[in-house]
């Protein structure tokens, strides 16, 4: 397993947010984490990346227990995130944004830039444009490109469809698939269950801080409870 969470309990102050969450992502797998508002999706990502520390349980990445490791350490080990709402450095150029994604890596970044520009040729043309002046869909590419600059083995995506027009949501998931096909494992956190399940291999459903359901993506799509709760039909 590339990533394994075992019985993770995370608190915000006295509030018990994640209540014994266990999940895993295999090498090269595309897994989605579904759930409604306040179900603990983002907290799960923050725990994986080390932005919040769990009170108990463990996070194992690539055979190493990183439960107490810093965010920088985890990124060095091969994690990367596309944050919710993308959070680009808006007054900086595309190139500069991409470079920030590879800050942890020393040495020649040319190969990493080439890889991103191959995946998103549009970014190559726009390399000196300020990220904040781009459209939502273009910003999404910069955000994914920035995360890929560290050549991660696991890409975490927090609500990629958030704030995008329907056509761009589709585009966004095409990007996710492209990354997945390049051999990178992806963990997508989404509210848009339909879209997420159409590309994912497996899925987890979070409900008020617990894993309520887990199965193969095609099986989840047929699951009656899930359909009632999230797919609205």
């Amino acid at each position: 397993m590339l990533l394994a969470l075992k019985d993770v309990n995370t608190y915000y102050g006295q509030i018990h947010i994640l209540q014994g969450v266990s999940l895993d992502v295999a090498e090269g797998e595309l897994v989605c984490l579904l759930g409604g508002n306040a179900s603990g999706k983002s907290t799960t990502l923050k725990t994986i990346l080390g932005l919040v520390a769990p009170r108990s349980g463990s996070v194992v990445f690539d055979g190493e227990d990183v439960t107490r490791a810093s965010t920088s350490r985890r990124i060095e080990r091969g994690m990367a995130i596309v944050p919710e709402n993308r959070r680009l450095f808006s007054p900086m150029t595309v190139t500069e944004n991409l470079e920030m994604g590879a800050y942890r890596r020393s040495g020649d970044l040319r190969a990493a830039f080439e890889r991103v520009y191959d995946l998103f040729p549009l970014l190559a043309d726009r390399r000196s444009q300020l990220a904040g002046t781009m459209s939502g869909g273009e910003q999404q590419m910069v955000a994914v490109g920035r995360a890929l600059m560290s050549e991660p083995r696991l890409l975490l995506m927090d609500e990629p469809s958030m704030g995008l027009a329907p056509i761009l949501v589709e585009r966004s998931f095409e990007i996710i698939q492209a990354v997945h096909e390049a051999g990178v494992a992806v963990l997508v956190v989404e509210q848009n269950a339909n879209m997420a399940l159409s590309v994912a291999d497996r899925g987890y459903v979070l409900q008020t801080g617990r894993i309520a359901l887990t199965d193969r993506a095609d099986a989840l799509r047929e699951n009656d409870d899930l359909r009632k709760a999230y797919l609205g039909r």
Partner: peptide, 16 residues
């Protein structure tokens, strides 16, 4: 500059 623009994103990118 990245740190000034968005400290949280900077942290998520692993900037020291």
């Amino acid at each position: 500059r990245a740190l000034r623009e968005d400290p949280l994103a900077a942290e998520q990118m692993g900037l020291p």
